[in-house]
Write a protein that binds this DNA or RNA. Structure first.
Lengths: 140, 140
DNA sequence: TATATCTTTGTACTGATTACAAAAATATAA
DNA sequence: TTATATTTTTGTAATCAGTACAAAGATATA
C-alpha cells in the first residue's frame, strides 16, 4: 500500500471542525484513518481498522462521519466498484482505475475534460476498468 | 421521458444473438426495453415495465440478460447513483449528470479526456452531479 | 419418442447501508 | 456544583439491490 501513516492528528481535527462537526474522538479517528490510508477503504474497512483501538466504535458512527465529511467535500466517495462505496482522502481531481485482474484500484491522472456550460457541476467521478500495467504484461 | 418507443424488434434480436445468447422472448423483451427506454432504467424498473406483458417473467432473468448484454458492451451500466445500477442502451461515449434537485439523469457530451497510456482501459464511466439547467434557474 | 441441453423461474440468501431509539457524553443554566 | 438540555454514540432491526441455486419448463438433438 502507498498509505501515508504519518498524518498529523491536527489535520483530522481541522477537517472535522471545518465540516461543522464537534471533534469527538470517534470522528477524529475516522477522519485520520481516511487521511492516512489512501488505499480507498470502504466504511467497513475503516470500521474494522479502528475497532481495535476504539472497541466501542459502531458502524453507524463511521457511516455518519463519512457522509458528513463527504457532504462537505472533505473526502470523496469512489464508486468504481458497483454496489460498494469507497472513500478517498485525496480531494485533488483524479480518475480511478480498477484492474479487472488483480482488483487493485489506482489513482490516475486525467486532463482535458470539457462539458456543456448549462450544467452546474458540483461533483465528478471518472471510473475506469481494464488491465493495469502489471497484469497487462502478465497476460501475454 | 425522451424514450423512443419505436424501436424495431429486429435490432433487439440482433443484439441478443450477437451477445451469444439464444433469442428467447424474455431476452428480446429485455433488450428491446433497454433500446426503447433511454431514461436509464434500473433492472427492477425493466422488470416491472415488462411484467404486464410477460406475467411469468422473473427478476433473475432480467438481471442475467442485462449482465450478458453489458459484458458484451451492447448496453452500458451507469452508476451515477451510489448503490443502484442503471442501464443505458446508448453505447456512444458520453457522461451522465444527476441533478441533486430533481433527481433526473441527463446524458451529456464530453470531450478531450486524456489518460496515461500504461493502463489498458476497457470501460469508462463519467458521473457528474450538480444542478441541471432548469433547477439552476429555479434556484435563484 | 427419448434424451440431453439450455433457459426460466422462484425462493432463499447475502451484504452494504439506513432507521431509530436507548444509552452515554458533553455543554449550558441555575 | 447540580440539574437540565443538547449532542453524540451505540446496537439492533430493517431495508433493499443484487446473487446463488435448484427445480421446472422449453428447446434442440439423437
Amino acid at each position: 500500500m502507498t498509505d501515508n501513516i504519518h498524518t498529523s492528528p491536527g489535520s483530522a481535527v481541522k477537517m472535522v471542525t471545518e465540516c461543522g462537526l464537534r471533534p469527538s474522538p470517534q470522528r477524529i479517528a475516522v477522519a485520520e484513518y481516511v487521511l492516512s490510508h489512501l488505499s480507498h477503504p470502504t466504511a467497513d474497512e475503516i470500521f474494522t481498522g479502528l475497532k481495535e483501538r476504539y472497541p466501542t466504535l459502531s458502524r453507524t458512527t463511521v457511516y455518519n462521519t463519512l457522509h458528513a465529511l463527504a457532504a462537505h467535500g472533505a473526502v470523496l466517495e469512489v464508486n468504481v466498484e458497483p454496489g460498494l462505496t469507497r472513500f478517498d482522502g485525496c480531494t485533488e481531481p483524479h480518475a480511478h482505475f480498477r484492474c479487472v485482474d488483480c482488483s487493485r484500484i489506482f489513482d490516475i491522472r486525467m486532463s482535458g475534460m470539457e462539458f456543456p456550460h448549462e450544467f452546474d457541476i458540483s461533483t465528478m467521478q471518472v471510473n475506469l476498468t481494464g488491465h493495469c500495467p502489471e497484469c497487462r504484461q502478465a497476460h501475454r
